[in-house]
């Protein structure tokens, strides 16, 4: 067996042009899901049990994302068409909507559920004491949340947010099923011309490793920056770990994760 290296080189750069699509889905999913997930986590730490929230979380947890994608890609356009054009008579060309929006909907739905758990845990880890101290000095509950609780909660959630981002990035490879032209879709299309699937997959594999590694590097640096309030010593340890993660061993580890 021989690899078509010329094809691989070409494909590498063709695939590169689709990176913005992959990153757009990832970044917008994360931004929207962080807001929704945080709101949801506040609901969760409240006393009242909310059945709707529970149903939503078990739906997302209990169904494969591939099935969700196929299901919503079949359902959403028809449903939107019905609501907007037949009920509301708005005359919008539903079937011209960029499939990226459907992809976003599915990924946001999944990621919000994950992040709501992440934020719930990180909010609980900060404890009631600092909230009470903030109230005692005369802050409003919302000021206390915004100035004291949320910044710490985000900091302690950062490693989990990093993992989630990497997972979302990897899941975007399923968006090709909704005809989104992400790096996976482009690679597949290239492969199909001359049946160079192995080469094409190798190329996307490398791209995913690069993207995941860069994302983790960005998070590492952010973590070190924002965690300065933790002990001086601790920050140093973080730095060393941070470097280790980008050593050869660290990258190998990451490659295995991506491969799986």
């Amino acid at each position: 067996m021989e690899l078509n290296t010329k094809f691989m080189k070409e494909t590498f750069f063709i695939v590169m042009k689709a990176i913005p699509v992959t990153l757009e889905i990832t970044i917008f999913t994360m931004i929207i899901s962080m807001v929704l997930g945080f709101a949801l986590s506040l609901k969760k730490i409240g006393r009242k049990k909310n059945h709707l929230v529970n149903f939503y979380v078990s739906f997302v947890r209990g169904t494969p994302i591939v099935l969700q994608i196929l299901f919503f890609y079949s359902l959403l356009p028809t449903l939107l068409n019905y609501i907007l054009n037949i009920v509301l008579k708005l005359n919008i060309k539903i079937f011209d909507i960029n499939p990226i929006f459907y992809a976003l909907a599915v990924f946001v739905m999944n990621t919000t559920a994950v992040l709501s758990e992440v934020f719930r845990a990180s909010l609980l880890s900060i404890g009631q004491g600092q909230m009470e101290a903030a109230l005692a000095v005369g802050l409003t509950p919302w000021q206390a949340m915004r100035r004291i609780i949320i910044p710490q909660s985000l900091t302690s959630a950062l490693p989990n947010i990093c993992n989630t981002t990497v997972n979302v990035l990897k899941s975007t490879s399923l968006a090709y099923m909704m005809t989104v032209q992400d790096i996976m879709a482009v690679a597949k299309k290239q492969a199909a011309f001359g049946y160079n699937y192995i080469e094409a997959y190798l190329v996307v594999l490398v791209w995913y490793i690069i993207l995941c590694t860069v994302i983790q590097l960005i998070f590492r640096v952010t973590e070190i920056k924002v965690a300065q309030y933790k002990q001086g010593k601790r920050v140093k340890v973080l730095k060393i770990q941070g470097l280790r993660r980008f050593s050869y061993a660290g990258i190998k580890e990451r490659a295995q994760v991506v491969w799986r």
């Binding site: 900060i126 004491g129 600092q130 009470e132 101290a133 903030a134 109230l135 005692a136 000095v137 005369g138 802050l139 000021q143 100035r147 004291i148 910044p151 710490q152 900091t155 309030y229 933790k230």
Partner: peptide
């Protein structure tokens, strides 16, 4: 609350604020 100060058994300092900021927080906001 503004007419009282409260000192907690477990200090309950704001972990993400310096000593100075722990004090200015209530004074400012």
């Amino acid at each position: 609350r503004k007419k009282t100060g409260f000192v907690f058994q477990n200090y309950n300092l704001f972990a993400n604020k310096t000593a100075l900021e722990n004090i200015t927080e209530g004074l400012i906001y």
